[in-house]
Design a protein around this nucleic acid. Sequence first.
DNA 1: GCTTGGCGCGCATATCTATTCGTAACGCGC
DNA 2: GCGCGTTACGAATAGATATGCGCGCCAAGC
Lengths: 316, 316
Amino acid sequence: MPDQEQTRLMIKVARLYHTHDMRQTDIAKRLHISQSRVSRLLTQAEEVGLVRTVVAVPAHIHAELEEAVEAAYPVSEVHVVDVVSDDESELGHDLAHAMAMLLAEVTFEAATVGFTSWSRTLRTMVDQMQPLRTRTQQVVELLGDLGPPLLQHDAARSTQRLATLAGAEAVFLRLPGVVPSVEIRDLLVSRDVYAREALALLDGIDLALVGIGACEVDPTLRSGDNFFTHEQFAQMRERGAVGEVCLHFIDADGEPIEGELDDLVIGVTRDQLRAAGRRWAVAGGVRKREAVRAAVKGGWVDTLVTDAATAEYLLA
Amino acid sequence: MPDQEQTRLMIKVARLYHTHDMRQTDIAKRLHISQSRVSRLLTQAEEVGLVRTVVAVPAHIHAELEEAVEAAYPVSEVHVVDVVSDDESELGHDLAHAMAMLLAEVTFEAATVGFTSWSRTLRTMVDQMQPLRTRTQQVVELLGDLGPPLLQHDAARSTQRLATLAGAEAVFLRLPGVVPSVEIRDLLVSRDVYAREALALLDGIDLALVGIGACEVDPTLRSGDNFFTHEQFAQMRERGAVGEVCLHFIDADGEPIEGELDDLVIGVTRDQLRAAGRRWAVAGGVRKREAVRAAVKGGWVDTLVTDAATAEYLLA
DNA sequence: GCTTGGCGCGCATATCTATTCGTAACGCGC
DNA sequence: GCGCGTTACGAATAGATATGCGCGCCAAGC
């Protein structure tokens, strides 16, 4: 956290550079510092968010697509993003960016925001986000930890950052997201007062930010690693599952597939999710498109951010 | 005006560069174009406004100053800008930038906007402006031409650009701003139907954008060059003038100083100006501070954009 | 007091970007 | 078709920016 003086300097440099179009060398001379320092100050200014550069993609280039999807599915708002490539990671990046922009413009209030920090797209989004004006009091994690400790760390950081940006308190759910048995789940929950608080908050979510998963082991996770196994996924697919929202499996029509796996998850329940005021989802790409269709068809999300290819798939 | 395809490319490049943080060389390889082209496309994207980089100066760092001035003078809004230097040209630049930002946020409607295109600060402002949402129908010049043909050309271009940005029609006042005698004025006006239209429009200005001038020959103009002479200014100073707003002289208390010079001006009248719904002025710097004080004291402006030093002078 | 570690800075320079220049392609008048 | 001006482009390179490295400063620990 840069101090007062540093910040003043950053602003001064940033303005001389960006608004007055001066070269770094000239700024350096003028302020009697080295060019390298100017360069570093500028980098900092970007990091801190003092300098923002936005690429104003003409909004709603895909307006027809959006309207068509909105008409065909029980979803209130669809945003179709013009992605630079269909490569999964870049696609995620673009979707994340778009959703960050969207959230920045939000005007409604949302005292309790639910957040799935294990979705990579959502974490990317948080990294790109600017301060929110949702008057949020708590940001609650919707699911326990998944994957290895490193990922858990990332997830926690992400939740924390979102909370900070929203001017809210971060409420963590620092338990495994998937456990081997109901007994273990109950045991863990009963012994963790923080987790119980978090789970209780999930009853009154105003805005849920969720991802949508294909019915398979996420490529970034490992089978069984605080997560369902390949076998468990296979089993659910046999029973018709094509995707999941917050680890709740749904079939091609978006109908929930109940089963014993539900009891192995520590996180938001189906009912709690359905009861959330707004449910924003971001997902796209070939791998997930079936899941996306199921999720919107079943009304699991009311605002969807996706790519053009997926939107077209939804209409096909 | 770049064509469709060009624009798509610009957006793509801009996003790869700014949002995906790719190097120009990599973008070039990826899109099978040269790096120089990427560089040029990026420049274009900035020019066209597809890419905007803003330095988020914490708003109202000088809030106390602003409130103090608002309390001390009959002015409804004061914006004190944190300028990078007191050098006149840089100061103008900063003030212009601030005013452009301000106008971008404007929400009210203004069907007729009056504009003084011969104020350098205002022209700088127009260059930095983004499209407005004032639902403007006409942008009318408040004064005739001043200075040499080159300047007149600049002024016209500026008015045109402002009109374009506002989605409005530009109404020019293509006559000399200052003439040698009343007879000539009447003759010129009587023979120019466009000018008469423009002058008529000045009766119903919703928003006037004006500069404030010290009572002297503007350094960028020449004595008598479609402008008042040194002698005329001296004469007005003897009669107590300390500044002018749209070439109407005012004394230290902001009271108008009437006289024969009024009849030599082709442009908005005092009464027309006073009747304008909103009167936004931008001015600052040591040379003009006395004039600024007079202008706000006399209620000639209702929104003032100025620098901290001038604001402090107003309170001294 | 003397290490030791961390940080902030400037120097030199590697890396990245803008510009110059030459070429080719296009439109336009003849 | 043939100059002729205009525009768009890429190669080379001038120019601007980022970064590895080392130094000096400060603070904490012994």
